[in-house]
Amino acid sequence: MSITFDHTIIAATDRDASAQFYLDVLEATSAPSWGPFTNITLDAGVMLQFAEPPFDYHPQHYAFLVDDELFDRAYSKFTDRGVEHWADPQRTRQGETNTEHGGRGDYFLDPGGNLLELITRRYF
């Protein structure tokens, strides 16, 4: 069997609000939820499970490779909501879009404080 990434748990202060943000902005698909998880799926069946941990957590970084059309739609959605965005993960280039790798990239925070990255081209 080959290796395939299946799922990850994303810590959230409000699991339903975070899941809905990903559904809206990234155009993900709802998935059956259970127990402490609110679940969504991405293409190829990768599942993202949102949970509210009973402890403080360090925000994480999640990068998503998207086509130009989804990038444009997502960019419009999060900027229309007033979500700050940056061209770099250090968050020094506010309001800019990264074009250093032959595509476009942008960083923004989800409702749980995790740093999301959208890119239209892989870095390698």
Score class of each variant (00 low, 15 high):
Phe37Ser: 07
Val25Cys: 12
Trp34Gln: 13
Asn39Met: 04
Tyr22Thr: 08
Asp16Thr: 11
Val25Lys: 03
Ala31Phe: 14
Asp24Ser: 14
Asn39Trp: 02
Ser30Gly: 09
Ala44His: 08
Leu26Met: 14
Pro36Leu: 05
Ser33Asp: 14
Phe21His: 11
Asp14Ile: 05
Ala31Gln: 14
Gly45Cys: 01
Thr13Gly: 13
Ser30Glu: 15
Ala28Asp: 06
Leu42Ser: 01
Val46Met: 00
Ile40His: 03
Gln20Asn: 14
Ala28Tyr: 11
Ser30Met: 10
Thr13Cys: 07
Asp14Thr: 04
Ala28Asn: 07
Asn39Gly: 01
Ser30Ala: 15
Asp43Ile: 01
Ser33Pro: 12
Ser18His: 03
Thr41Asn: 05
Thr13Glu: 11
Gln20Glu: 15
Thr38Gln: 08
Arg15Met: 05
Ala31Glu: 15
Trp34Ser: 14
Leu42Met: 10
Val46Gly: 00
Ala17Pro: 02
Ser30Trp: 11
Gly45Val: 00
Trp34Pro: 00
Glu27Asp: 15
Thr38Ala: 12
Ala12Lys: 04
Val25Asp: 06
Ser18Arg: 01
Asp24Arg: 13
Thr13Leu: 11
Leu26Tyr: 05
Ala12Leu: 03
Val46Tyr: 08
Val46Ile: 13
Arg15Glu: 07
Thr13Asn: 13
Tyr22His: 14
Ala17Met: 04
Asp16Arg: 09
Thr38Cys: 05
Thr41Tyr: 03
Phe21Asp: 07
Met47Tyr: 00
Asp24Val: 07
Ala44Met: 01
Ser33Val: 06
Asp16Lys: 10
Thr38Val: 14
Tyr22Ile: 12
Leu23Met: 08
Ala44Arg: 08
Leu26Arg: 09
Pro32Thr: 12
Ser18Gln: 10
Ala17Trp: 01
Leu23Phe: 09
Thr41Trp: 02
Ser33Gly: 13
Asp24Pro: 05
Phe21Arg: 04
Gly45Arg: 01
Thr41Ser: 11
Ala19Gly: 08
Pro32Tyr: 10
Ser30Ile: 11
Arg15Gly: 01
Val46Cys: 00
Asp43Leu: 05
Val25Met: 11
Asp24Gln: 14
Leu42Asn: 02
Pro36Gln: 11
Asp16Pro: 00
Trp34Phe: 15
Leu23Trp: 10
Val25Ser: 07
Ser30Cys: 09
Asp43Lys: 05
